[in-house]
């Protein structure tokens, strides 16, 4: 097939998708966020920054579709002390680098800074993030997101929102 007629995803298209996802997370529009995902997609926040067999390691989060749905339901329930209210967040995602792509998918690496604020306290979480995006008809979907926090193997704190 001709290159021009493929489903290839451009970096520009990927960045627009990632920024939209970032805004959905800051505004905590979790229903829309869930809809970004493929059914098989995994949302992972590892502890070990170098490992790759996440399934056999302890992670901060290792969410399939069911766990994502349960997690967002919990955060929005109003009954969780740490997320009612949760910290407010503002995040920046940048330093985009294309990793690998094929017809219909693209993996992108990026840097993320999340600033959170709650009860007189402002804190910062830095991370390297990897996204795998896939084309689904006229839209993109998130098929994999791994957030490697700078301090993932050190003490964190109760985080009442999504990274």
């Amino acid at each position: 097939m001709e290159k021009t007629a493929t489903n290839a995803i451009s970096l520009d298209e990927a960045i627009r998708f990632i920024w939209r996802e970032a805004e959905l997370l800051d505004t905590q529009d979790y229903a829309q966020w869930l809809d970004l995902w493929t059914p098989e997609g995994l949302y992972i926040i590892p502890i070990d920054r170098d490992g790759d067999a996440r399934i056999d390691q302890l992670n901060v989060a290792y969410d399939d579709a069911e766990m994502r749905a349960a997690r967002t339901k919990r955060l929005k329930s109003g009954f969780s002390m740490s997320s009612a209210p949760s910290a407010r967040t503002v995040r920046l995602v940048s330093r985009f680098v294309e990793e690998a792509g094929d017809d219909g998918s693209l993996t992108v690496r990026a840097a993320q800074q999340v600033v959170e604020y709650k009860f007189n306290r402002t804190r910062l979480l830095g991370a390297d993030v990897t996204y795998r995006l896939v084309r689904d008809g006229d839209r993109l979907r998130l098929d994999h997101k791994e957030i490697r926090l700078l301090n993932s193997d050190d003490s964190l704190w109760g985080i009442g929102y999504l990274l």
Partner: peptide
């Protein structure tokens, strides 16, 4: 853990 369904509420 920091994003478990229990610990963050305990910590809070």
């Amino acid at each position: 853990g920091p994003m478990g369904f229990g610990s963050p509420d305990d910590a809070e």
